[in-house]
Design a protein around this nucleic acid. Structure first.
Length: 496
RNA sequence: GCCGCGUUCGUCUAGCUUGGUCCAGGACGCCGGCUUUUCACGCCGGUAACACGGGUUCAAAUCCCGUACGCGGUACCA
């Protein structure tokens, strides 16, 4: 490695809410930095005024805070390379754009977007040669073809111009990628990229390399969509006489929809019920550590059979050479499975804290004590905290209907009588704890000479409306005496 | 179209550098069983893959070539 210390950056564009793929990129950068005792920098790439979204930066910061991916430098926390918003670093980019022009590695161009679009749209000319390719622009209106005085005059007169990278003809640009190995591009395939836009703002390409160099970034870890533009970046590093950082391009997160494929888009994800934004995961009640754990495994593997990691363990196990190179499909089931383990690791109090706002939002009045009792019962059967409430509504309200399949299978001719008898005995009971409920039921079953199941199943159906759930006795105790009696008697009546 | 990257169970993947120990291992999902005179958890078992075609070799998931397919890029967006 050419660099002494590791410095990486997460450089999102504030064009909207932070996407799940962005979080994974941040995670890998974070893991790599911590693993090598390096620094993790947050840089906001807000050079496109037209796509700027005011709240986006705050959302990005919130997401990083929520997941615990602490950055060492960035907006808000500062650092010796501040500022960390590209919109505040404009002069820097203009300076290096000029330097590139002075070195002959870039040039001023006066062609309008419309002219270029028209040329591109024309496709091939009659003789089969393309109307536009990488060499075409060399014959257009720019500082390569015009007299220096003319160029100077046009600029002084306020004509719109851009600065373009002058891609050298006939060259192969090669660079090494930590996850893909060697990658080569033929320079004739590379367009003369705009570096400085006519509004004076840099494009991603210029801003990116200037900042990565000035901020002393050692490793650029980003999504694969950047692989094709990396040769342009390499060319710029060369022209400026800078050492390029080490590159690592991560596989893209794809839509699990086999018929459509492609990058996981907002539309696809919504259609498939997959949350796209980090905010959505937070609202859905996923554990941040669980989300991170899942994301780490999406494109990386530790080389061992370990699947569950806390952040520290992930840091320890992480390495770029175990990052895969093919696109990965998002698997919601696996995320839920991972999250389930994080739910189990919670204390009952912690789970209740998470369930509280859900219960409140649903309008259920429940004491902390009882909510904890419920959490203890369902902790091992929910995958996401809100399900404590939303999948177990019978704790809060009488069931309105009874699961058809369960009734068919468990409700028999003698069920109503047994249930009524059970209810009567419970009514005479002083307390209402699970042990008593069980004793009474088993005694009754013995007397009536039936299996305990003959009462257990109907009781569950009556009290919860379902054929599955936590152990019946604990469940009934949590539901409470009054409600249990009411529900059993009603079921006896309704189901016969 | 062109350029680049990729292709092992439905999905995430191990294995590929240094060919044989792989009739390919793990995990999610799914199915079955055990346990529980209640659901689940747990445990046990099962299902299912080297994209295709040519080489090279005594031997190929592993090396080479080609094809197909997928994805990315091809913007004064990032």
């Amino acid at each position: 490695m050419a660099h002494g210390s590791v410095r990486v950056r997460f450089a999102p564009s504030p064009t909207g809410l932070l996407h799940i793929g962005g979080l994974r990129t941040a995670l890998y950068n974070y893991l790599f930095a911590r693993k090598h005792d390096g620094e993790f920098v947050l840089r906001i790439e807000d050079t496109d005024r037209s796509r700027y979204v005011a709240d986006a930066e705050e959302n990005i910061v919130d997401a990083l805070n929520w997941t615990g991916l602490d950055y060492d430098e960035g907006p808000g926390v500062g650092g010796e390379h501040a500022p960390y918003r590209q919109s505040e670093r404009g002069d820097l980019y203009r300076k290096y754009a000029r330097e590139l022009v002075d070195q002959g590695a870039a040039y001023y161009a006066f062609d309008t977007e419309e002219e270029l679009d028209a040329l591109r749209a024309r496709g091939e000319d009659g003789d089969g040669t393309p109307a536009y390719d990488s060499s075409t622009r060399r014959d257009m209106r720019n500082s390569l073809t015009m007299a220096p005085e003319t160029v100077e005059r046009k600029i002084n007169e306020g004509d719109d111009y851009v600065v373009r990278l002058k891609v050298p003809p006939q060259r192969t640009i090669h660079f090494d990628d930590e996850v893909r190995g060697g990658v080569s591009f033929d320079a004739t395939e590379i367009d003369d990229q705009v570096l400085l836009k006519s509004d004076g703002m840099p494009t991603y390409h210029l801003a990116n390399i200037v900042d990565d160099h000035l901020m002393d970034i050692s490793h650029v870890i980003r999504g694969e969509e950047w692989l094709s533009s990396t040769p342009k970046h390499v060319l710029m590093y060369e022209a400026l006489g800078w050492d390029p950082p080490t590159f690592a391009h991560l596989p893209l997160i794809m839509s699990p929809d086999s018929s459509r494929g492609g990058k996981l888009s907002k539309r696809d994800a919504e259609r498939l019920g997959i949350p796209v934004y980090v905010t959505d995961y937070r609202e859905a009640g996923y554990e941040p550590d669980g989300l991170l754990n899942f994301l780490a495994l999406l494109g990386w593997n530790p080389g061992t059979e370990q699947e569950l990691f806390d952040l520290e363990e992930m840091v320890e196990a992480f390495s770029l050479d175990r990052v895969g190179s093919s696109g990965v499909q998002f698997d919601l089931d696996k995320l839920r499975w991972v999250n389930e383990h994080y739910i189990r690791a919670l204390s009952v109090e912690e789970l209740a804290e998470r369930a509280r706002p859900v219960a409140d939002a649903e309008g259920y009045e429940v004491s902390d004590e009882r909510l904890e009792e419920i959490c203890a019962l369902v902790q091992e059967r929910v995958q996401v905290a809100p399900e404590v409430v939303t999948d177990n509504r019978y704790f809060f309200e009488d069931p309105e209907e009874y699961e058809e399949e369960g009734v068919e299978k468990r409700w028999t001719d003698d069920s109503a009588d047994l249930l009524l008898a059970y209810a009567d005995r419970l009514e005479a009971l002083d307390g209402f704890d699970a042990d008593d409920l069980e004793t009474v039921l088993r005694d009754l079953a013995d007397e009536k000479d039936v299996g305990a199941g003959a009462i257990i199943h109907p009781a569950r159906l009556a009290v919860s409306g379902r054929s599955y759930g936590p152990g019946v006795f604990g469940l009934m105790a949590a539901v409470g005496k009054e409600a249990c009696l009411r529900r059993m008697r009603r079921a006896a009546e309704v189901l016969g």
